Amino acid sequence: MWLRLLMLCFFNEALGHLNASSQAEFNPAVIFSQTTELLEGDILQLKCMVFMTEKPKDALCIYLCKDGVATRIERITRSKSIVFKIPQVAIKDSGNYSCVYSTEKQLVQRVTAVGHNTVFIQVREFGLGNIYRRNAVIFESASVDLICFGVETKTDRSLHMYLCKNGIGVNMDVARSDGIAIFILGQVRREDSGNYSCVYSIKKHHPGNVTSTNERSVIIQVTEMDVHQWWVNVIRLLCSVGVVIAAMAFLTVHNFYSIKAMFCATNAPATRSKPDDTNSSSKETQQLTQERRESRQIQLSSTVSPQGEVS
């Protein structure tokens, strides 16, 4: 009989706590999130804020709820907001998150409520990256560069980039700090033709275990080398180089003669003075010759008499 009484008291006390928890008053709070899509292993940060006209006299208990059930609790005294951090999230952490608060502390597992608003968080195993192909025409035995772009994460862990062909991973590389990874396919063959895309993850996987349905892809078609077309391309290249050389030679000659003409035009006044000096000297010579002739005539007239005898 005493055992029955003890058991009855225990169940009554437990039922009382449960009723008190279920009847506790929870006020809705506002939730904020900088991002809604995360990768496995990333950090989730959710900010809960309480809107009150007056500062709370007592400490408040803020509950972070996922799909209407509380998962975490924090106490605030002077502030009206708190940030919940969930490190290394997993796919199971996806869901609708909200915040509520109360002046009474309750067991987290027994709190069922929804806040003022909800934020849907999606945790993915792989992120969809962008891909860019540098080569325009691809022949057999050529080298192909594929550039993959990822995104920046909120964790310090490395970002693993996976190159997929027809939806299956074929290669993996650690992306740089800016989220870029370059894959080089050397000496490609016709069997390397296909649909290529990129995905990224914080976790490291074997490339063969990676499957992707990324629509951001490029099509690579490897064709056989055409010898005739190769020679045509070489001739076109040589002609282009010849035209460039001829143009440079023409410009060089043109500039040379332009500079020479400018130099001659600058020295032109000095060269024009020589004909004037020549004309003046020729006039003086003619005058001197005329004077000599007149002097000889005077001498002859003085030595010969009017009768024709020489004195």
Rank of each mutant, 00 (worst) to 15 (best):
L128E: 11
S282R: 12
N27I: 08
T223C: 03
E309P: 01
V253L: 02
Y162T: 07
R110G: 01
I182W: 01
R78Q: 14
M1A: 12
P269F: 08
V218F: 02
H206S: 08
I131Q: 03
F10W: 10
Y200F: 15
R236G: 13
E37F: 07
G208E: 03
S212W: 03
D156K: 09
R272V: 10
G16M: 13
D173N: 09
D156T: 07
T35M: 10
P87R: 03
T289C: 12
S197H: 06
D42M: 04
G186N: 14
Y162A: 10
T36M: 10
N279M: 00
M262P: 00
Q286M: 15
Q122H: 13
D93G: 06
E191L: 13
W231S: 05
A247Y: 08
K105S: 13
V222Y: 09
I43A: 01
T36G: 07
D145I: 02
F139G: 05
N130S: 15
R72S: 02
V151Q: 12
I219G: 03
H206P: 00
T211A: 03
L8F: 12
S141E: 14
S79E: 13
A113S: 12
K92Y: 09
S212P: 06
C65V: 11
G167R: 04
Q34F: 04
V100G: 03
V114I: 10
I82C: 03
D42L: 03
E224K: 12
S177Y: 04
R216A: 09
K57S: 15
S22H: 11
S33M: 05
I259S: 04
V174P: 02
Q88D: 09
I182Q: 09
V89F: 06
C48Y: 00
A270V: 06
L15T: 07
K203I: 07
R272L: 11
L185M: 15
V199I: 15
N279G: 00
V50C: 02
G127T: 07
T278N: 03
L159R: 08
I245E: 04
V123I: 15
V123H: 05
N166E: 11
F32G: 01
S301L: 07
R75L: 12
D226S: 13
V114H: 01
E215C: 06
I202V: 10
E104H: 11
V243N: 12
S311L: 15
S21W: 10
D93M: 07
L237F: 14
D226I: 09
D178V: 10
N171Y: 05
H254E: 03
G169E: 02
V222K: 06
A136L: 12
K204I: 06
V210W: 00
V174T: 13
G167P: 08
Q88W: 01
V174R: 08
N19M: 13
L6A: 14
R292H: 04
G179N: 07
I62P: 02
Q45I: 05
C264P: 00
V243K: 14
L64D: 04
I82S: 01
I147F: 01
M52L: 15
D178R: 10
L39Y: 02
L238I: 14
E224W: 03
M7V: 13
L107M: 11
N255I: 01
H206E: 11
L3G: 12
A59L: 08
E294S: 11
I298G: 00
I298L: 08
S193D: 07
G115W: 01
C61K: 08
D93K: 04
M161L: 11
S143P: 01
I62T: 02
G41A: 04
T112H: 13
M1P: 06
S81V: 00
